[in-house]
Design a protein around this nucleic acid. Structure first.
Lengths: 229, 229
DNA sequence: TTGCCTTAGTGTCTCGTATACACTAAACTG
DNA sequence: CAGTTTAGTGTATACGAGACACTAAGGCAA
């Protein structure tokens, strides 16, 4: 025990809520705990913060170690510090949320944290610690934020159809959107760039593919244009 | 040094950005540091988290110890964890912001943290540590949140005039609002309760006093009514 | 090859809300 | 009582949100 302090210190961890989107659902990435407490339970990926790394570095490191994910959209969520949230000792957790698209990022199945797997948000296992609370907070944040800031594109592949984009908003906001109004609105915003490509290998009329024009978006933010869906 | 751990642990603090409103300005409460580092500089009130208290308890305790304020609106802001934010050692700070009204809450001038004083947001001294960043983050949060959630009432006295309320929004949002449109809107929301009292001791026509009807607000939140200013 | 199935893609009308805008009323002051 | 200061009030216009249904295109199977 070489590290001593005058006063007792809580331990500090990071936990990540990783959202991913596939054709059918909005999903979250969980890992199965291989050690006590909550051995065998599903939990958010995360771990202890090292003393020589920032909080964001810790979150990204743990995410890569436990799930193989890197270079993902990551934003701080909230810091959870209830007294008994970990049965072993006092642990403060700085929670983060990440957005990835399931096509571009493959998750390594088995890791040093045990098994990693995607779960639909409406079919979740019981989670370890207070991770259900953290996940719930993340979902609320995502729902609130996606309407004002175009972070949703992080969940879509680089090229996407307007229908895919609409489905994404519908999953996150959990309500149906009108097709024509949705298209009118998002095309009117001027941050979508039409490509000359269309969907491949679909058994019906192929939809045009679009990409998100980040430069145009940044220009518009500077002009104070707002971005409500 | 009785507290030993297998791995080194960062220290954990809380810092509070306390906003207050008077007749002329939106202000923030700062304390003058009486010890190194940054001795003599102005800083946000805050201090170390004890191992047997939650983060919110720590924030409230420090706030009372250093400024005498209690029972104020307090919400978690963000957690700051850059490597060199404190020159002594690695310190993580969970930042909070508070809203108080300067009429009801008197700040004790001299405290164990030295001098406490209110500063206008556009006339700030140089702040210790990364507290300028924290304050800036808090101001952005307040600006974003006040438009959707009626937290602004925390800054007003219990009874207030519509003009005081409009000034409050104007200070926070940093833009002028139209008097008639503002009144139409806020009265139409149905969360303001008209009293039969008017302003006292003013050298002009006295304005009617209103109070915030929290019960009505909660009812409306449940109905999903939104609250944009 | 043709009919069928599935999804893509498109325009208008209505209604409600945001915004722009100026005068009279009331209360105190000297 | 004339002057000063702030309170308090209504309307007209423009814009955007939301409701709504049909045709186009492409693959598939009989």
């Amino acid at each position: 025990m070489p590290y001593s302090y005058e006063h007792p210190r809580p331990a500090l961890t990071v936990d990540c809520v990783v959202f991913g989107l596939d054709d059918t659902d909005l999903k979250v990435l969980l890992i199965q705990r291989s050690v006590a407490p909550f051995k065998g339970s599903w939990a958010l990926p995360g771990g202890f913060v090292h003393v020589e790394e920032t909080l964001e570095e810790a979150a990204r490191r743990e995410l890569e170690e436990e799930t193989g994910l890197r270079n993902v959209f990551l934003e701080q969520l909230y810091t959870f510090g209830e007294l008994k949230r970990d049965p072993r000792e006092r642990i403060i957790s700085v929670a983060w949320y990440a957005l990835v698209n399931l096509r571009d990022h493959k998750v390594k199945a088995a890791t040093d944290a045990g098994e990693a797997a995607w779960f639909s948000l409406d079919d979740l296992p019981t989670l370890a610690f207070d991770h259900a609370t953290i996940l719930d907070t993340a979902q609320q944040r995502l729902r609130g934020k996606v309407r004002y800031v175009p972070i949703g594109f992080e969940l879509l592949p680089r090229l996407f159809t307007l229908t895919q984009m609409q489905r994404m908003y519908e999953k996150i906001l959990d309500r149906a959107l009108d097709k024509r109004n949705f298209r009118k609105k998002v095309l009117g915003m001027g941050v979508l760039e039409e490509t000359d490509q269309v969907q491949q290998d679909v058994a019906h009329r192929a939809a045009r593919l679009y990409r998100f024009n980040e430069a145009a978006y940044k220009r518009m933010v500077k002009q104070g244009i707002n971005f409500e869906i």
